[in-house]
Design a protein around this nucleic acid. Structure first.
Length: 464
RNA sequence: GCUUCCUUAGCUCAGUCGGUUAGAGCAUCUGACUGUUAAUCAGGGGGUCCAAGGUUCAAGUCCUUGAGGGAGCGCCA
């Protein structure tokens, strides 16, 4: 008999129909006459209850049905006599496809996220991680759908690269060389001429620069792929391998960029509320009691738009009124997370898009304002998460870009192709980068970024 | 990278001021129970107290070093 998914059975009212379900046991409750098996197949967070009359089944078979075991059940879909569910399956045949011993690491209650992280290959079977990864899939779909609907083309930028973008971070090197016997030149520097690519290469830290090339041809593009940072960041918001979304758009200005950032995030959050109701309700109950209310409030409120200078003024006013910060904040300093948190969580209590930062704390490619002091960066700051989006209008003038590269002493010898965009038909353009897992943190209410990616890579950890 | 906290049964934890044989709930095993909802009830088994060294008559408890993990900060997405 063909298997029916549990998500479909639970919405069916074809009582009396013979069905086949396959899945993993969550719990079995026994009594003298009847056993109740909660079965889950991952198609939904909800289980289906399988009812097994004790007289119909061998005792040894029923004993094998422990938490985690894999079953195939043929039975009749019936209206439930119990209170907890409307329908259930009266079992006629039960086959144990694979038993699951008592040393199964996922038990039916009370494990910490730290414990489950060490068993990441099995944590996928829990309610929480099932919910998280169904939502992760849905967010990926929402992202593609949003950009597709709005005329963006999905553009694939390389994973292996010979440029280091904005110096965005430490990079993982890619080589086929024998690391125990490196060929070096007269100055003792490594000679890459006999390496696979004939030059030093690394895993990408951003697809933005290639994305800009594409925007200069296709108009509106986005990237969505893995990104790597070799920084020794030990926090609940950083990964060495994460997924980033980077749209890049020709012919837009700062206000339109901020509109795009806000509209895009709201679309994703709305998608989650519409498509992941059961999973969100579970997370709202067991992980973060304020989750659904927070998601609903984000799609209803207009994000605050303020400049860096206005933000500094608010912070200095707060200090004048007795607010204490660990770090100073005078004009020109980068904001520490305590400052961002004050603005987003205390002063405004809603998402903030901050723009026009001092040029020295931002990347070389950002468009310089007429004051020659600030650049058109537009970062979206979220409660709990901090910076969820980093965006900017790009400097399209070759002269200004070159001046900035020179001023910062940035090595551009492998980046001639990037500068060519400014030589041949340059267009005003803008874009942003969004860390996919940061979006996941916000949408799921999870606290640690290692729990919203299936197999996290962090310093000293590359298990599974 | 800096600061700080944690590590006791398969899991979640308690363990007082350093003092007898290290405890509980869940899981597992045995039994009871006529439909349960993380079922319930009775009973049994289960410990290298993270590792090494030290202080002490006596260390799960105090000290040193190390390993693993969490949180805060920095860097950032």
């Amino acid at each position: 008999m063909k298997r029916t998914k549990i998500v479909d059975l639970l919405s069916s009212t074809e009582y009396g129909k013979e069905v086949c379900v396959k899945g993993w046991v969550r719990t079995r409750r026994g009594s003298k006459a009847v056993n109740f098996i909660a079965l889950n197949d991952g198609s939904t967070i909800k289980n289906i209850q399988v009812v097994a009359d004790v007289e119909k089944f061998d005792e040894e078979l029923l004993k094998q049905i422990t938490t985690g075991a894999c079953l195939s059940v043929n039975g009749t879909l019936v209206e439930s006599e119990g209170a907890g569910q409307s329908s259930e399956i009266q079992a006629n045949e039960i086959e144990v496809l694979c038993t699951c011993g008592a040393d199964y690491p996922m038990q039916k209650k009370g494990q910490t996220f730290e414990y489950m992280r060490q068993h990441a290959h099995m944590r996928l079977r829990t309610n929480t991680f099932g919910a998280v990864f169904r939502i992760r899939h849905n967010m990926a779909m929402a992202i593609h759908q949003y950009f597709h609907e709005h005329g963006f083309f999905y553009f694939h930028t390389p994973i292996i690269t010979a440029s280091d973008c904005e110096g965005a971070g430490q990079m993982f090197q890619v080589t086929t060389k024998n690391l125990y016997n490196l060929k070096k030149d007269e100055e003792g520097k490594i000679d890459y001429s006999d390496d696979f690519f004939g030059k030093q290469t690394s895993l990408t830290v951003s697809g933005q620069l290639e994305g800009e090339l594409a925007a200069m041809a296709l108009g509106k593009i986005y990237t969505f792929g893995p990104t790597f940072r070799a920084e020794n960041s030990n926090t609940p918001r950083h990964l060495a391998e994460f997924w980033m979304i980077e749209p890049e758009v020709a012919f837009i200005q700062k206000d339109e960029l901020m509109d795009l950032e806000e509209d895009f995030i709201k679309y994703c959050v709305r998608w989650a509320l519409e498509h992941c109701k059961d999973d969100l309700e579970f997370l709202n109950q067991f992980v973060d009691k304020g989750l659904i209310a927070r998601l609903e409030s984000v799609i209803k409120t207009d994000f605050v738009r303020l400049t860096y200078t206005e933000g500094i003024n608010i912070l200095q006013e707060a200090i004048k009124n007795g607010k204490k910060f660990e770090f100073p904040c005078t004009w020109g300093d980068d904001l520490a997370s305590e400052h961002e948190r004050y603005l987003v969580e205390e002063h405004f209590n809603k998402p903030v898009i901050m723009s026009d930062y001092p040029k020295d704390i931002k990347a070389f490619y950002m468009k310089i304002n007429e004051d020659d002091k600030t650049v058109q960066g537009t970062d979206v700051l979220f409660p709990q998460i901090g910076e969820i989006i980093g965006g900017s209008v790009r400097e399209e003038s070759l002269d200004k870009l070159n001046a900035e590269i020179e001023r910062r002493d940035i090595p551009m010898k492998d980046m001639w192709w990037y500068l060519d965009t400014r030589r041949f038909g340059a267009a005003p353009h803008a874009g942003f980068g969004l860390g996919f897992e940061r979006l996941m943190l916000f949408v799921t209410g999870m606290q640690n970024i290692r729990d919203v990616i299936p197999f996290p890579r962090t310093p000293k950890t590359a298990e599974f």
